[in-house]
Design a protein around this nucleic acid. Structure first.
Length: 969
RNA sequence: GGGCCCGUAGCUUAGCCUGGUUGGAGCGCCCGGCUGAUAACCGGGAGGUCAUGCGUUCAAAUCGCAUCGGGCCCA
């Protein structure tokens, strides 16, 4: 054997291969070299969506990182500089506080205040990076490259300062205001919850369902009203009807009721209709309040028009209590009806409420129902099952509750939000005008403040005289502070709470509004706050926006995707990003949501170890990134795992054979048709992969690669075996082609499967070209050479592949083994159909093991001919086997047996042997006739009748005996 | 209650935008074969009311409407 050029392929487990590659990258500092290399390239603006490092990463995060990494690597290989190439961490918010509460075994605001905000927040700060090292380890293990040494961190003073700057900008423009606002509120935890948190806690609940009678002031009739929250009736101020809906006045059991016509039957069953009116005609009618608490508020207790009133359930007449519902609140605002709140912050009725003082509202329901019944104003009472939000951490039912809250008037910029959205390329496209667009159409003001502790402090100071200032920087705060800021000052509670500012209106001491802000505002500020804009990097940021590409999961539509867009529109009146790839959810193999409690969650590090990071990455690339997809070991192995297995085998085949022949690539081109075909397939694949990346349809490229690998293995290599095993004249060309294909494939795979790509590249390229870039990730991404793409060649070869299938079928139908050579086959068809196939018919002969393959215009007649059809062609096999063919067939049987024996002996390919045999006369004859052939195929130096001292095995072939001894030399 | 997405074989899916041969493929299953690169491969088979209904059309998996089912988001 010549000196091996390439390292033999031994590693069979992806995880082992990947670990070798990881240590190579580490040892040679490849990541840093890639960063160096990309510098000076055309800028590709990116922004990492910051994960919360105090939660553990799950498989969904692997998808996110898989997606980002592929695009970034692709861009880098195309000469771009990714900017900023920074990781980021989201640090603030309730999740962190909850972790700390658990850690300290305390619960609730009261306990935190007892402990001290300073101590509590110090704990939070320490807890923020609880899983940072796990996140970093995971990112490293799956090769998601970014600068983790210089990440942006949302709790850094510089970051917070940028956020403060932005808030002051809004405040100056009157877009940041304090007002009552209806928020989902947990009475036990004492804080409003974000929409995210609420979404986690919807459960089926059984609530009262009651029909209440409201007596009209000037008419002997009632409005019939339905509610599931009896406790809100105490605060009733209005009734609402839909102005366009038809209502009826009906009589039943001697009483008269107004209600929606469509609901009269389901609610009342039988009744007499007195008259029919439009909702608009009811508007303005006054009624007698059920409870006295609203009476002092001026003009209340009348019917108002509300578009939100539906006729699917209830009575079409909705009771309105402005403090406990968003529709209610907004309607009252429109009608100039003040707020009436009879409930305190713990969800209990306040002192002014008779009978129910101090009672938790949900507990009061049954008593209120009883009272209504006794007073004769209850038409009917029952229960209803519906979904209702519960606090995801303490399980209390949430209340929609009017809180004095700071909020951003996003609704004022609705038109700009919509216009700027037009400039964004959404992938998949339907989100643009679907989920996201609809959300913008109905955008609500953004409730910004949180009555909590760990977060960016709201930079607003307020004086008792009502004067307010918003602070936009640390310097400004220093300048206005009555006392100098302490040494250890930071832009967090409680430090900022202690700062007093002298009121310029009355000279009094202004105190900070003791809120922190919604953590989503922090992350939505990332594009500029990570640069400490505008305090630093002003020109840099302004010249490099918007962000070119972001990618996160679908749940960020109303999360990060929205907050980025909103903040950028508010501050700069431009979109924050140009392209957004929105990833689907990952479910388990049964289509169930993954969760720790279900026990079906996949732990990323364990999955990488088991299946390999490349394999998992590739699995994700095989289906559209935005599809909801299932994930299980079996599914991953069946698709991506199979592809890599095949690739690894092709690669290993090439290496061992090339080494045997001492192949050194010269770059010489092959004119052999099979090679021309494979190169055409290769360049078609390159084109597909590029198109896939450029249009964010990575799956198209990934599938193209999958098909190419299958073609190499199942067609090219099958037909080339002979070439490589015995030199038929084009062996070297075959190696050249295979070499080109594998090395190009390594670059094609680099963004998708960075480990396997590196392994191929190091062993195939670096070993023979020390001057080549040190890593595949420092290479240029391949360009499709259009001149090599030959659609005709691919089409004709495809036809031959299909004809081969028909031919195999024919053989099998008569039980004629492929190993048995046949004399001839015909491809029958019109000359114009068969002519282009001329150069390809040899492959058909080879694949079907036929001596002679020719074209014909008519099917030959006779029993010996088997006919199969494919499209406009027929394929005809002559199945007559003469003596010579029979012996050749037998000889091949003998060869196969000896080869099997070689394999069981675990012999090297090149190991020479001595072979002895005993056989039935027919086989003996075959061995004699084909002696040279058998010796050559099996590397037998000697082939003699009789026993030798080697390994013996016996077989039956067509009822004949064969015994063989194989002795390695 | 509203919005959006999705329903093609047991599973994963191609085809749908731009209507036109008997709706392809892979996995799995059953039967058979092959195997000195391959836990690979090859041949055959079973398995589809293209979710359902109505409509448009000479023609519908494909276009439209409705319904049902699943998912996500929001109330």
């Amino acid at each position: 054997m010549a000196n091996p050029v390439f390292k033999e392929v031994k590693v069979r487990k992806p995880a082992d291969l990947e670990k070798n590659v990881l240590s190579f990258w580490e040892k040679e500092n490849i990541e840093l070299k890639v960063r160096e290399k990309m510098k000076g390239g055309k800028i590709f603006v990116f922004c990492e969506g910051p994960p919360t490092a105090n939660g553990q990463p799950h498989i969904g995060h692997v998808l996110t990182r898989t997606s980002k990494d592929a695009f970034l690597r692709y861009k880098i290989m195309n000469g771009y500089e990714i900017f900023p190439y920074k990781a980021g961490w989201d640090c603030h918010g309730l999740p962190v506080e909850i972790e700390v509460e658990k850690e300290l075994k305390i619960s609730g605001k009261k306990k935190i205040l007892e402990l001290g905000i300073d101590k509590f927040n110090a704990k939070c700060k320490a807890s923020v990076f609880k899983y940072k090292s796990l996140w970093e380890a995971m990112s490293k293990r799956m090769a998601f490259w970014l600068d983790y040494e210089h990440p942006y961190i949302t709790m850094d003073d510089a970051y917070i300062e940028s956020v403060w700057w932005s808030l002051k900008e809004l405040w100056k423009r009157g877009l940041l205001e304090k007002s009552y606002y209806i928020v989902p509120y947990c009475p036990r935890c004492g804080t409003p919850l974000s929409s995210h948190e609420v979404a986690q806690g919807y459960e089926t609940a059984r609530d009262p369902s009651i029909y209440v009678k409201f007596k009209l002031q000037d008419e002997e009739a009632f409005f019939l009203v339905w509610t599931t929250t009896p406790w809100t009736l105490l605060s009733n101020l209005l009734l609402a009807v839909h102005p366009e809906v038809d209502y009826v006045l009906v009589e039943k059991d001697g009483e008269k009721y107004y209600l929606a016509e469509a609901l009269a039957k389901p609610v009342l069953e039988n009744f007499i209709v007195i008259k029919r009116v439009k909702g608009s005609e009811l508007v303005g009618k006054r009624y007698e309040p059920l409870f006295p608490y609203g009476k002092a508020l001026g003009k209340v207790h009348y019917v108002a028009a509300g578009d939100f009133v539906g006729t699917e359930e209830g009575t079409g007449i909705v009771h309105i209590a402005p403090a406990y519902g968003l529709d209610d609140y907004e309607l009252c605002k429109k009608e100039n009806v003040p707020l009436l709140n009879l409930v305190d912050e713990t969800g209990k009725f306040i002192d002014t409420v008779e009978n129910y003082t101090g009672m938790f509202v949900k507990d009061a329901d049954k008593h209120i129902i009883q009272e209504l019944k006794e007073r004769g104003v209850l038409y009917r009472a029952g229960t209803v099952e519906h979904t209702y939000p519960f606090c995801w951490r303490c399980d209390s039912p949430l209340l929609y509750y009017a809180l004095n809250t700071w909020f951003i008037r996003t609704s004022k910029l609705r038109e700009r939000l919509i216009t700027n959205n037009e400039q964004i390329n959404w992938v998949p496209e339907h989100l643009k005008h679907g989920r996201f667009g609809n959300f913008l159409e109905e955008v609500k003001d953004w409730a910004l403040s949180r009555n909590r502790f760990w977060g960016t402090p709201l930079p607003i100071w307020r004086c008792n005289c009502g004067h307010e200032v918003c602070i936009g920087s640390k310097k400004e705060l220093e300048a206005l502070a009555v006392e100098p800021l302490p040494q250890n000052f930071e832009l967090h509670r409680p430090f900022v709470d202690a700062v007093r500012i002298k009121c310029e209106k009355c000279g009094g001491a202004m105190k900070r509004e003791e809120y922190v802000i919604d953590g989503w505002y922090d992350s939505g500020s990332a594009p500029f706050a990570q640069f400490h804009y505008p305090f630093e990097n002003k020109e840099l940021f302004e010249s490099r926006r918007p962000v070119e590409f972001i990618s996160e999961a679908l749940d960020q539509t109303r999360g990060w995707f929205y907050t980025l867009h909103a903040i950028s529109t508010l501050l700069f009146d431009m979109p924050a990003y140009k392209n957004v790839v929105c990833l689907g959810l990952i479910l388990d193999d049964k289509g169930q949501k993954m969760s720790k409690s279900r026990g079906n969650a996949v732990e990323p590090m364990a999955a990488f170890e088991k299946m390999g990071a490349d394999v998992i990455r590739f699995y994700f690339y095989l289906t559209p990134l935005w599809n909801t997809s299932r994930f299980s070991e079996a599914m991953v192995n069946a698709t991506a795992g199979k592809m890599f297995n095949t690739l690894l085998n092709v690669y290993s085949f090439f290496v061992s054979n090339a080494n045997v022949d001492g192949f050194v690539p010269s770059g010489k081109e092959s004119e052999d048709l099979l090679d021309v075909w494979l190169l055409s397939r290769l360049h078609s694949t390159v084109r597909a992969v590029r198109e896939g990346f450029d249009t964010y349809n990575v799956h198209i490229g990934a599938r193209a690669i999958e098909n190419l690998v299958a073609d190499i293995s199942n067609w090219y290599l099958r037909l080339s075996r002979r070439r490589f095993w015995e030199d038929t004249g084009s062996k070297h060309e075959g190696y050249e082609t295979l070499y080109t294909v594998l090395t190009t494939l390594s670059k094609l795979l680099a963004p998708l499967a960075p480990f396997a790509a590196e392994e191929l590249y190091q062993n195939l390229v670096r070993s023979v070209k020390p001057e080549a870039p040190e890593s595949v990730h420092l290479c240029e991404f391949p360009a499709a050479d259009e001149t090599r793409i030959k659609p005709d060649v691919e089409r004709h070869m495809k036809k031959v592949m299909e004809l081969a299938e028909v031919g195999r079928n024919l053989r099998q139908s008569r039980g004629i083994k492929l190993r048995q050579p046949l004399a001839e086959l015909f491809v029958v068809g019109e000359p114009e159909a068969t002519k282009p196939l001329g150069p390809y018919i040899q492959y058909l002969a080879e694949e079907l093991n036929v001596k002679n393959a020719v074209f014909a215009e008519t099917v030959p007649a006779g029993d010996a001919y088997l006919v199969g059809e494919h499209e406009n062609l027929k394929i005809v096999l002559n199945i007559q086997i003469d003596e010579n063919l029979k012996y050749e067939g037998l000889a091949r049987e003998v060869v196969r047996r000896i080869q099997t024996l070689r394999k069981t002996l675990n012999l090297e390919y090149t190991q020479k042997i001595e072979t002895g045999y005993l056989a039935s006369p027919e086989i003996e004859k075959a061995i004699e006739v084909y002696r040279d052939y058998i010796m050559h195929e099996t590397l037998s130096e000697k082939l003699e009748k009789g026993e030798n001292s080697g390994k013996m095995e016996k077989w039956k072939i067509y009822e004949m005996d064969l015994t063989v001894w194989v002795k390695p030399l």
